[in-house]
Amino acid sequence: MIINILLYFKSFILNDKAFKIFTVYLLLICFVQLTTIFVGKILHKPNLFLSHFYFIIQFILLSFFYVELLRNKLLLYFCLPVLGFLTYQYIEDPSLFYRYNAIGISITQGVLILYSIIYLYRCLQGQNLFLIINVGLFLYLISSTLIFASGNLIFNLDISESMNYLLINTNRILYFLFQILIFIEWRKNYYKKIHRS
């Protein structure tokens, strides 16, 4: 992930707003992930609360990313009710901050999947910038939604630890594949821009 951040920042100035938003997304998501590792593995403290930041940051930045790709500011009106609903959830039940929010995860990622499908449809009409990233996002979001939306269910049932690790490792593998697709997108569409300038 850090390699992708460095490569995308290397191309930052030369590219459009969608590229810049996606680059900031990579940076902030990496920061949340590193913070999660620090809190959990080094401080040995519960770090589940950081997942809320991950999904909300992801939702906001990727929504802006798709607004730019689809050139449709109406998509932002989709964001407001979702963010309003999440805010209501956390105000109504502050303890939710320390639990999996399966509904919040499903809604935010569901909206992003919808944006991704709309963009895939646009790509059929000839637009193919960020196509590889969009396909990676679509596959990763579908699978991680299924994995993370079942988070509370997994903790409420007596599912074996090996099954829990299987789900977590499946998500890690899919995320790694997503990172490979991000690199392929950069190499295919942005590597040449650096060498031309």
Results as ranks from 00 to 15, higher is better:
1 M>P: 13
4 N>Q: 12
5 I>G: 08
6 L>Y: 13
9 F>K: 01
9 F>Y: 07
12 F>E: 00
12 F>I: 00
12 F>P: 11
13 I>H: 13
13 I>P: 02
14 L>P: 01
17 K>G: 10
18 A>N: 12
18 A>E: 04
19 F>D: 09
21 I>Q: 04
21 I>A: 08
22 F>L: 00
23 T>P: 01
23 T>Q: 03
26 L>T: 04
27 L>C: 09
28 L>G: 06
29 I>N: 05
31 F>L: 10
32 V>I: 10
32 V>D: 00
33 Q>N: 15
35 T>N: 06
35 T>E: 10
36 T>N: 14
37 I>M: 15
38 F>M: 11
38 F>N: 07
41 K>I: 03
46 P>M: 12
47 N>F: 07
49 F>M: 06
52 H>V: 13
55 F>S: 08
55 F>W: 04
55 F>C: 01
56 I>P: 06
57 I>H: 01
58 Q>H: 11
59 F>T: 11
60 I>H: 05
60 I>R: 06
61 L>S: 01
63 S>H: 07
65 F>T: 04
66 Y>L: 12
69 L>M: 00
73 K>A: 11
74 L>D: 12
74 L>T: 15
74 L>I: 10
75 L>T: 04
76 L>V: 03
76 L>R: 05
77 Y>E: 02
77 Y>R: 11
78 F>A: 13
78 F>G: 08
78 F>C: 11
82 V>S: 02
85 F>S: 05
86 L>I: 03
88 Y>N: 07
89 Q>C: 00
94 P>L: 04
94 P>Y: 00
95 S>H: 00
98 Y>D: 12
99 R>Q: 12
100 Y>A: 15
100 Y>L: 00
102 A>E: 15
102 A>S: 13
102 A>H: 14
103 I>G: 04
104 G>A: 03
105 I>E: 11
108 T>P: 02
108 T>S: 09
110 G>K: 02
110 G>P: 05
111 V>N: 07
112 L>E: 12
112 L>G: 05
119 Y>P: 02
119 Y>K: 02
120 L>H: 11
120 L>A: 03
121 Y>A: 08
123 C>P: 01
125 Q>P: 06
126 G>D: 05
126 G>N: 05
127 Q>A: 09
128 N>F: 11
132 I>R: 10
133 I>N: 07
134 N>D: 05
138 F>L: 12
139 L>T: 06
143 S>Y: 08
145 T>L: 12
145 T>F: 00
145 T>D: 09
146 L>P: 01
148 F>W: 07
148 F>V: 02
149 A>P: 03
150 S>Y: 00
151 G>D: 02
151 G>M: 03
152 N>I: 09
152 N>L: 13
153 L>F: 14
154 I>W: 10
155 F>W: 13
156 N>A: 14
157 L>V: 03
159 I>N: 07
159 I>K: 09
161 E>T: 14
162 S>G: 04
163 M>T: 15
167 L>R: 10
168 I>Y: 14
168 I>V: 13
169 N>L: 08
170 T>F: 07
171 N>L: 04
172 R>M: 13
173 I>R: 04
173 I>D: 03
173 I>Q: 07
174 L>G: 01
177 L>H: 01
178 F>N: 07
179 Q>C: 13
179 Q>I: 15
183 F>V: 12
184 I>Y: 13
186 W>T: 05
187 R>Y: 15
190 Y>I: 01
192 K>P: 02
195 H>A: 10
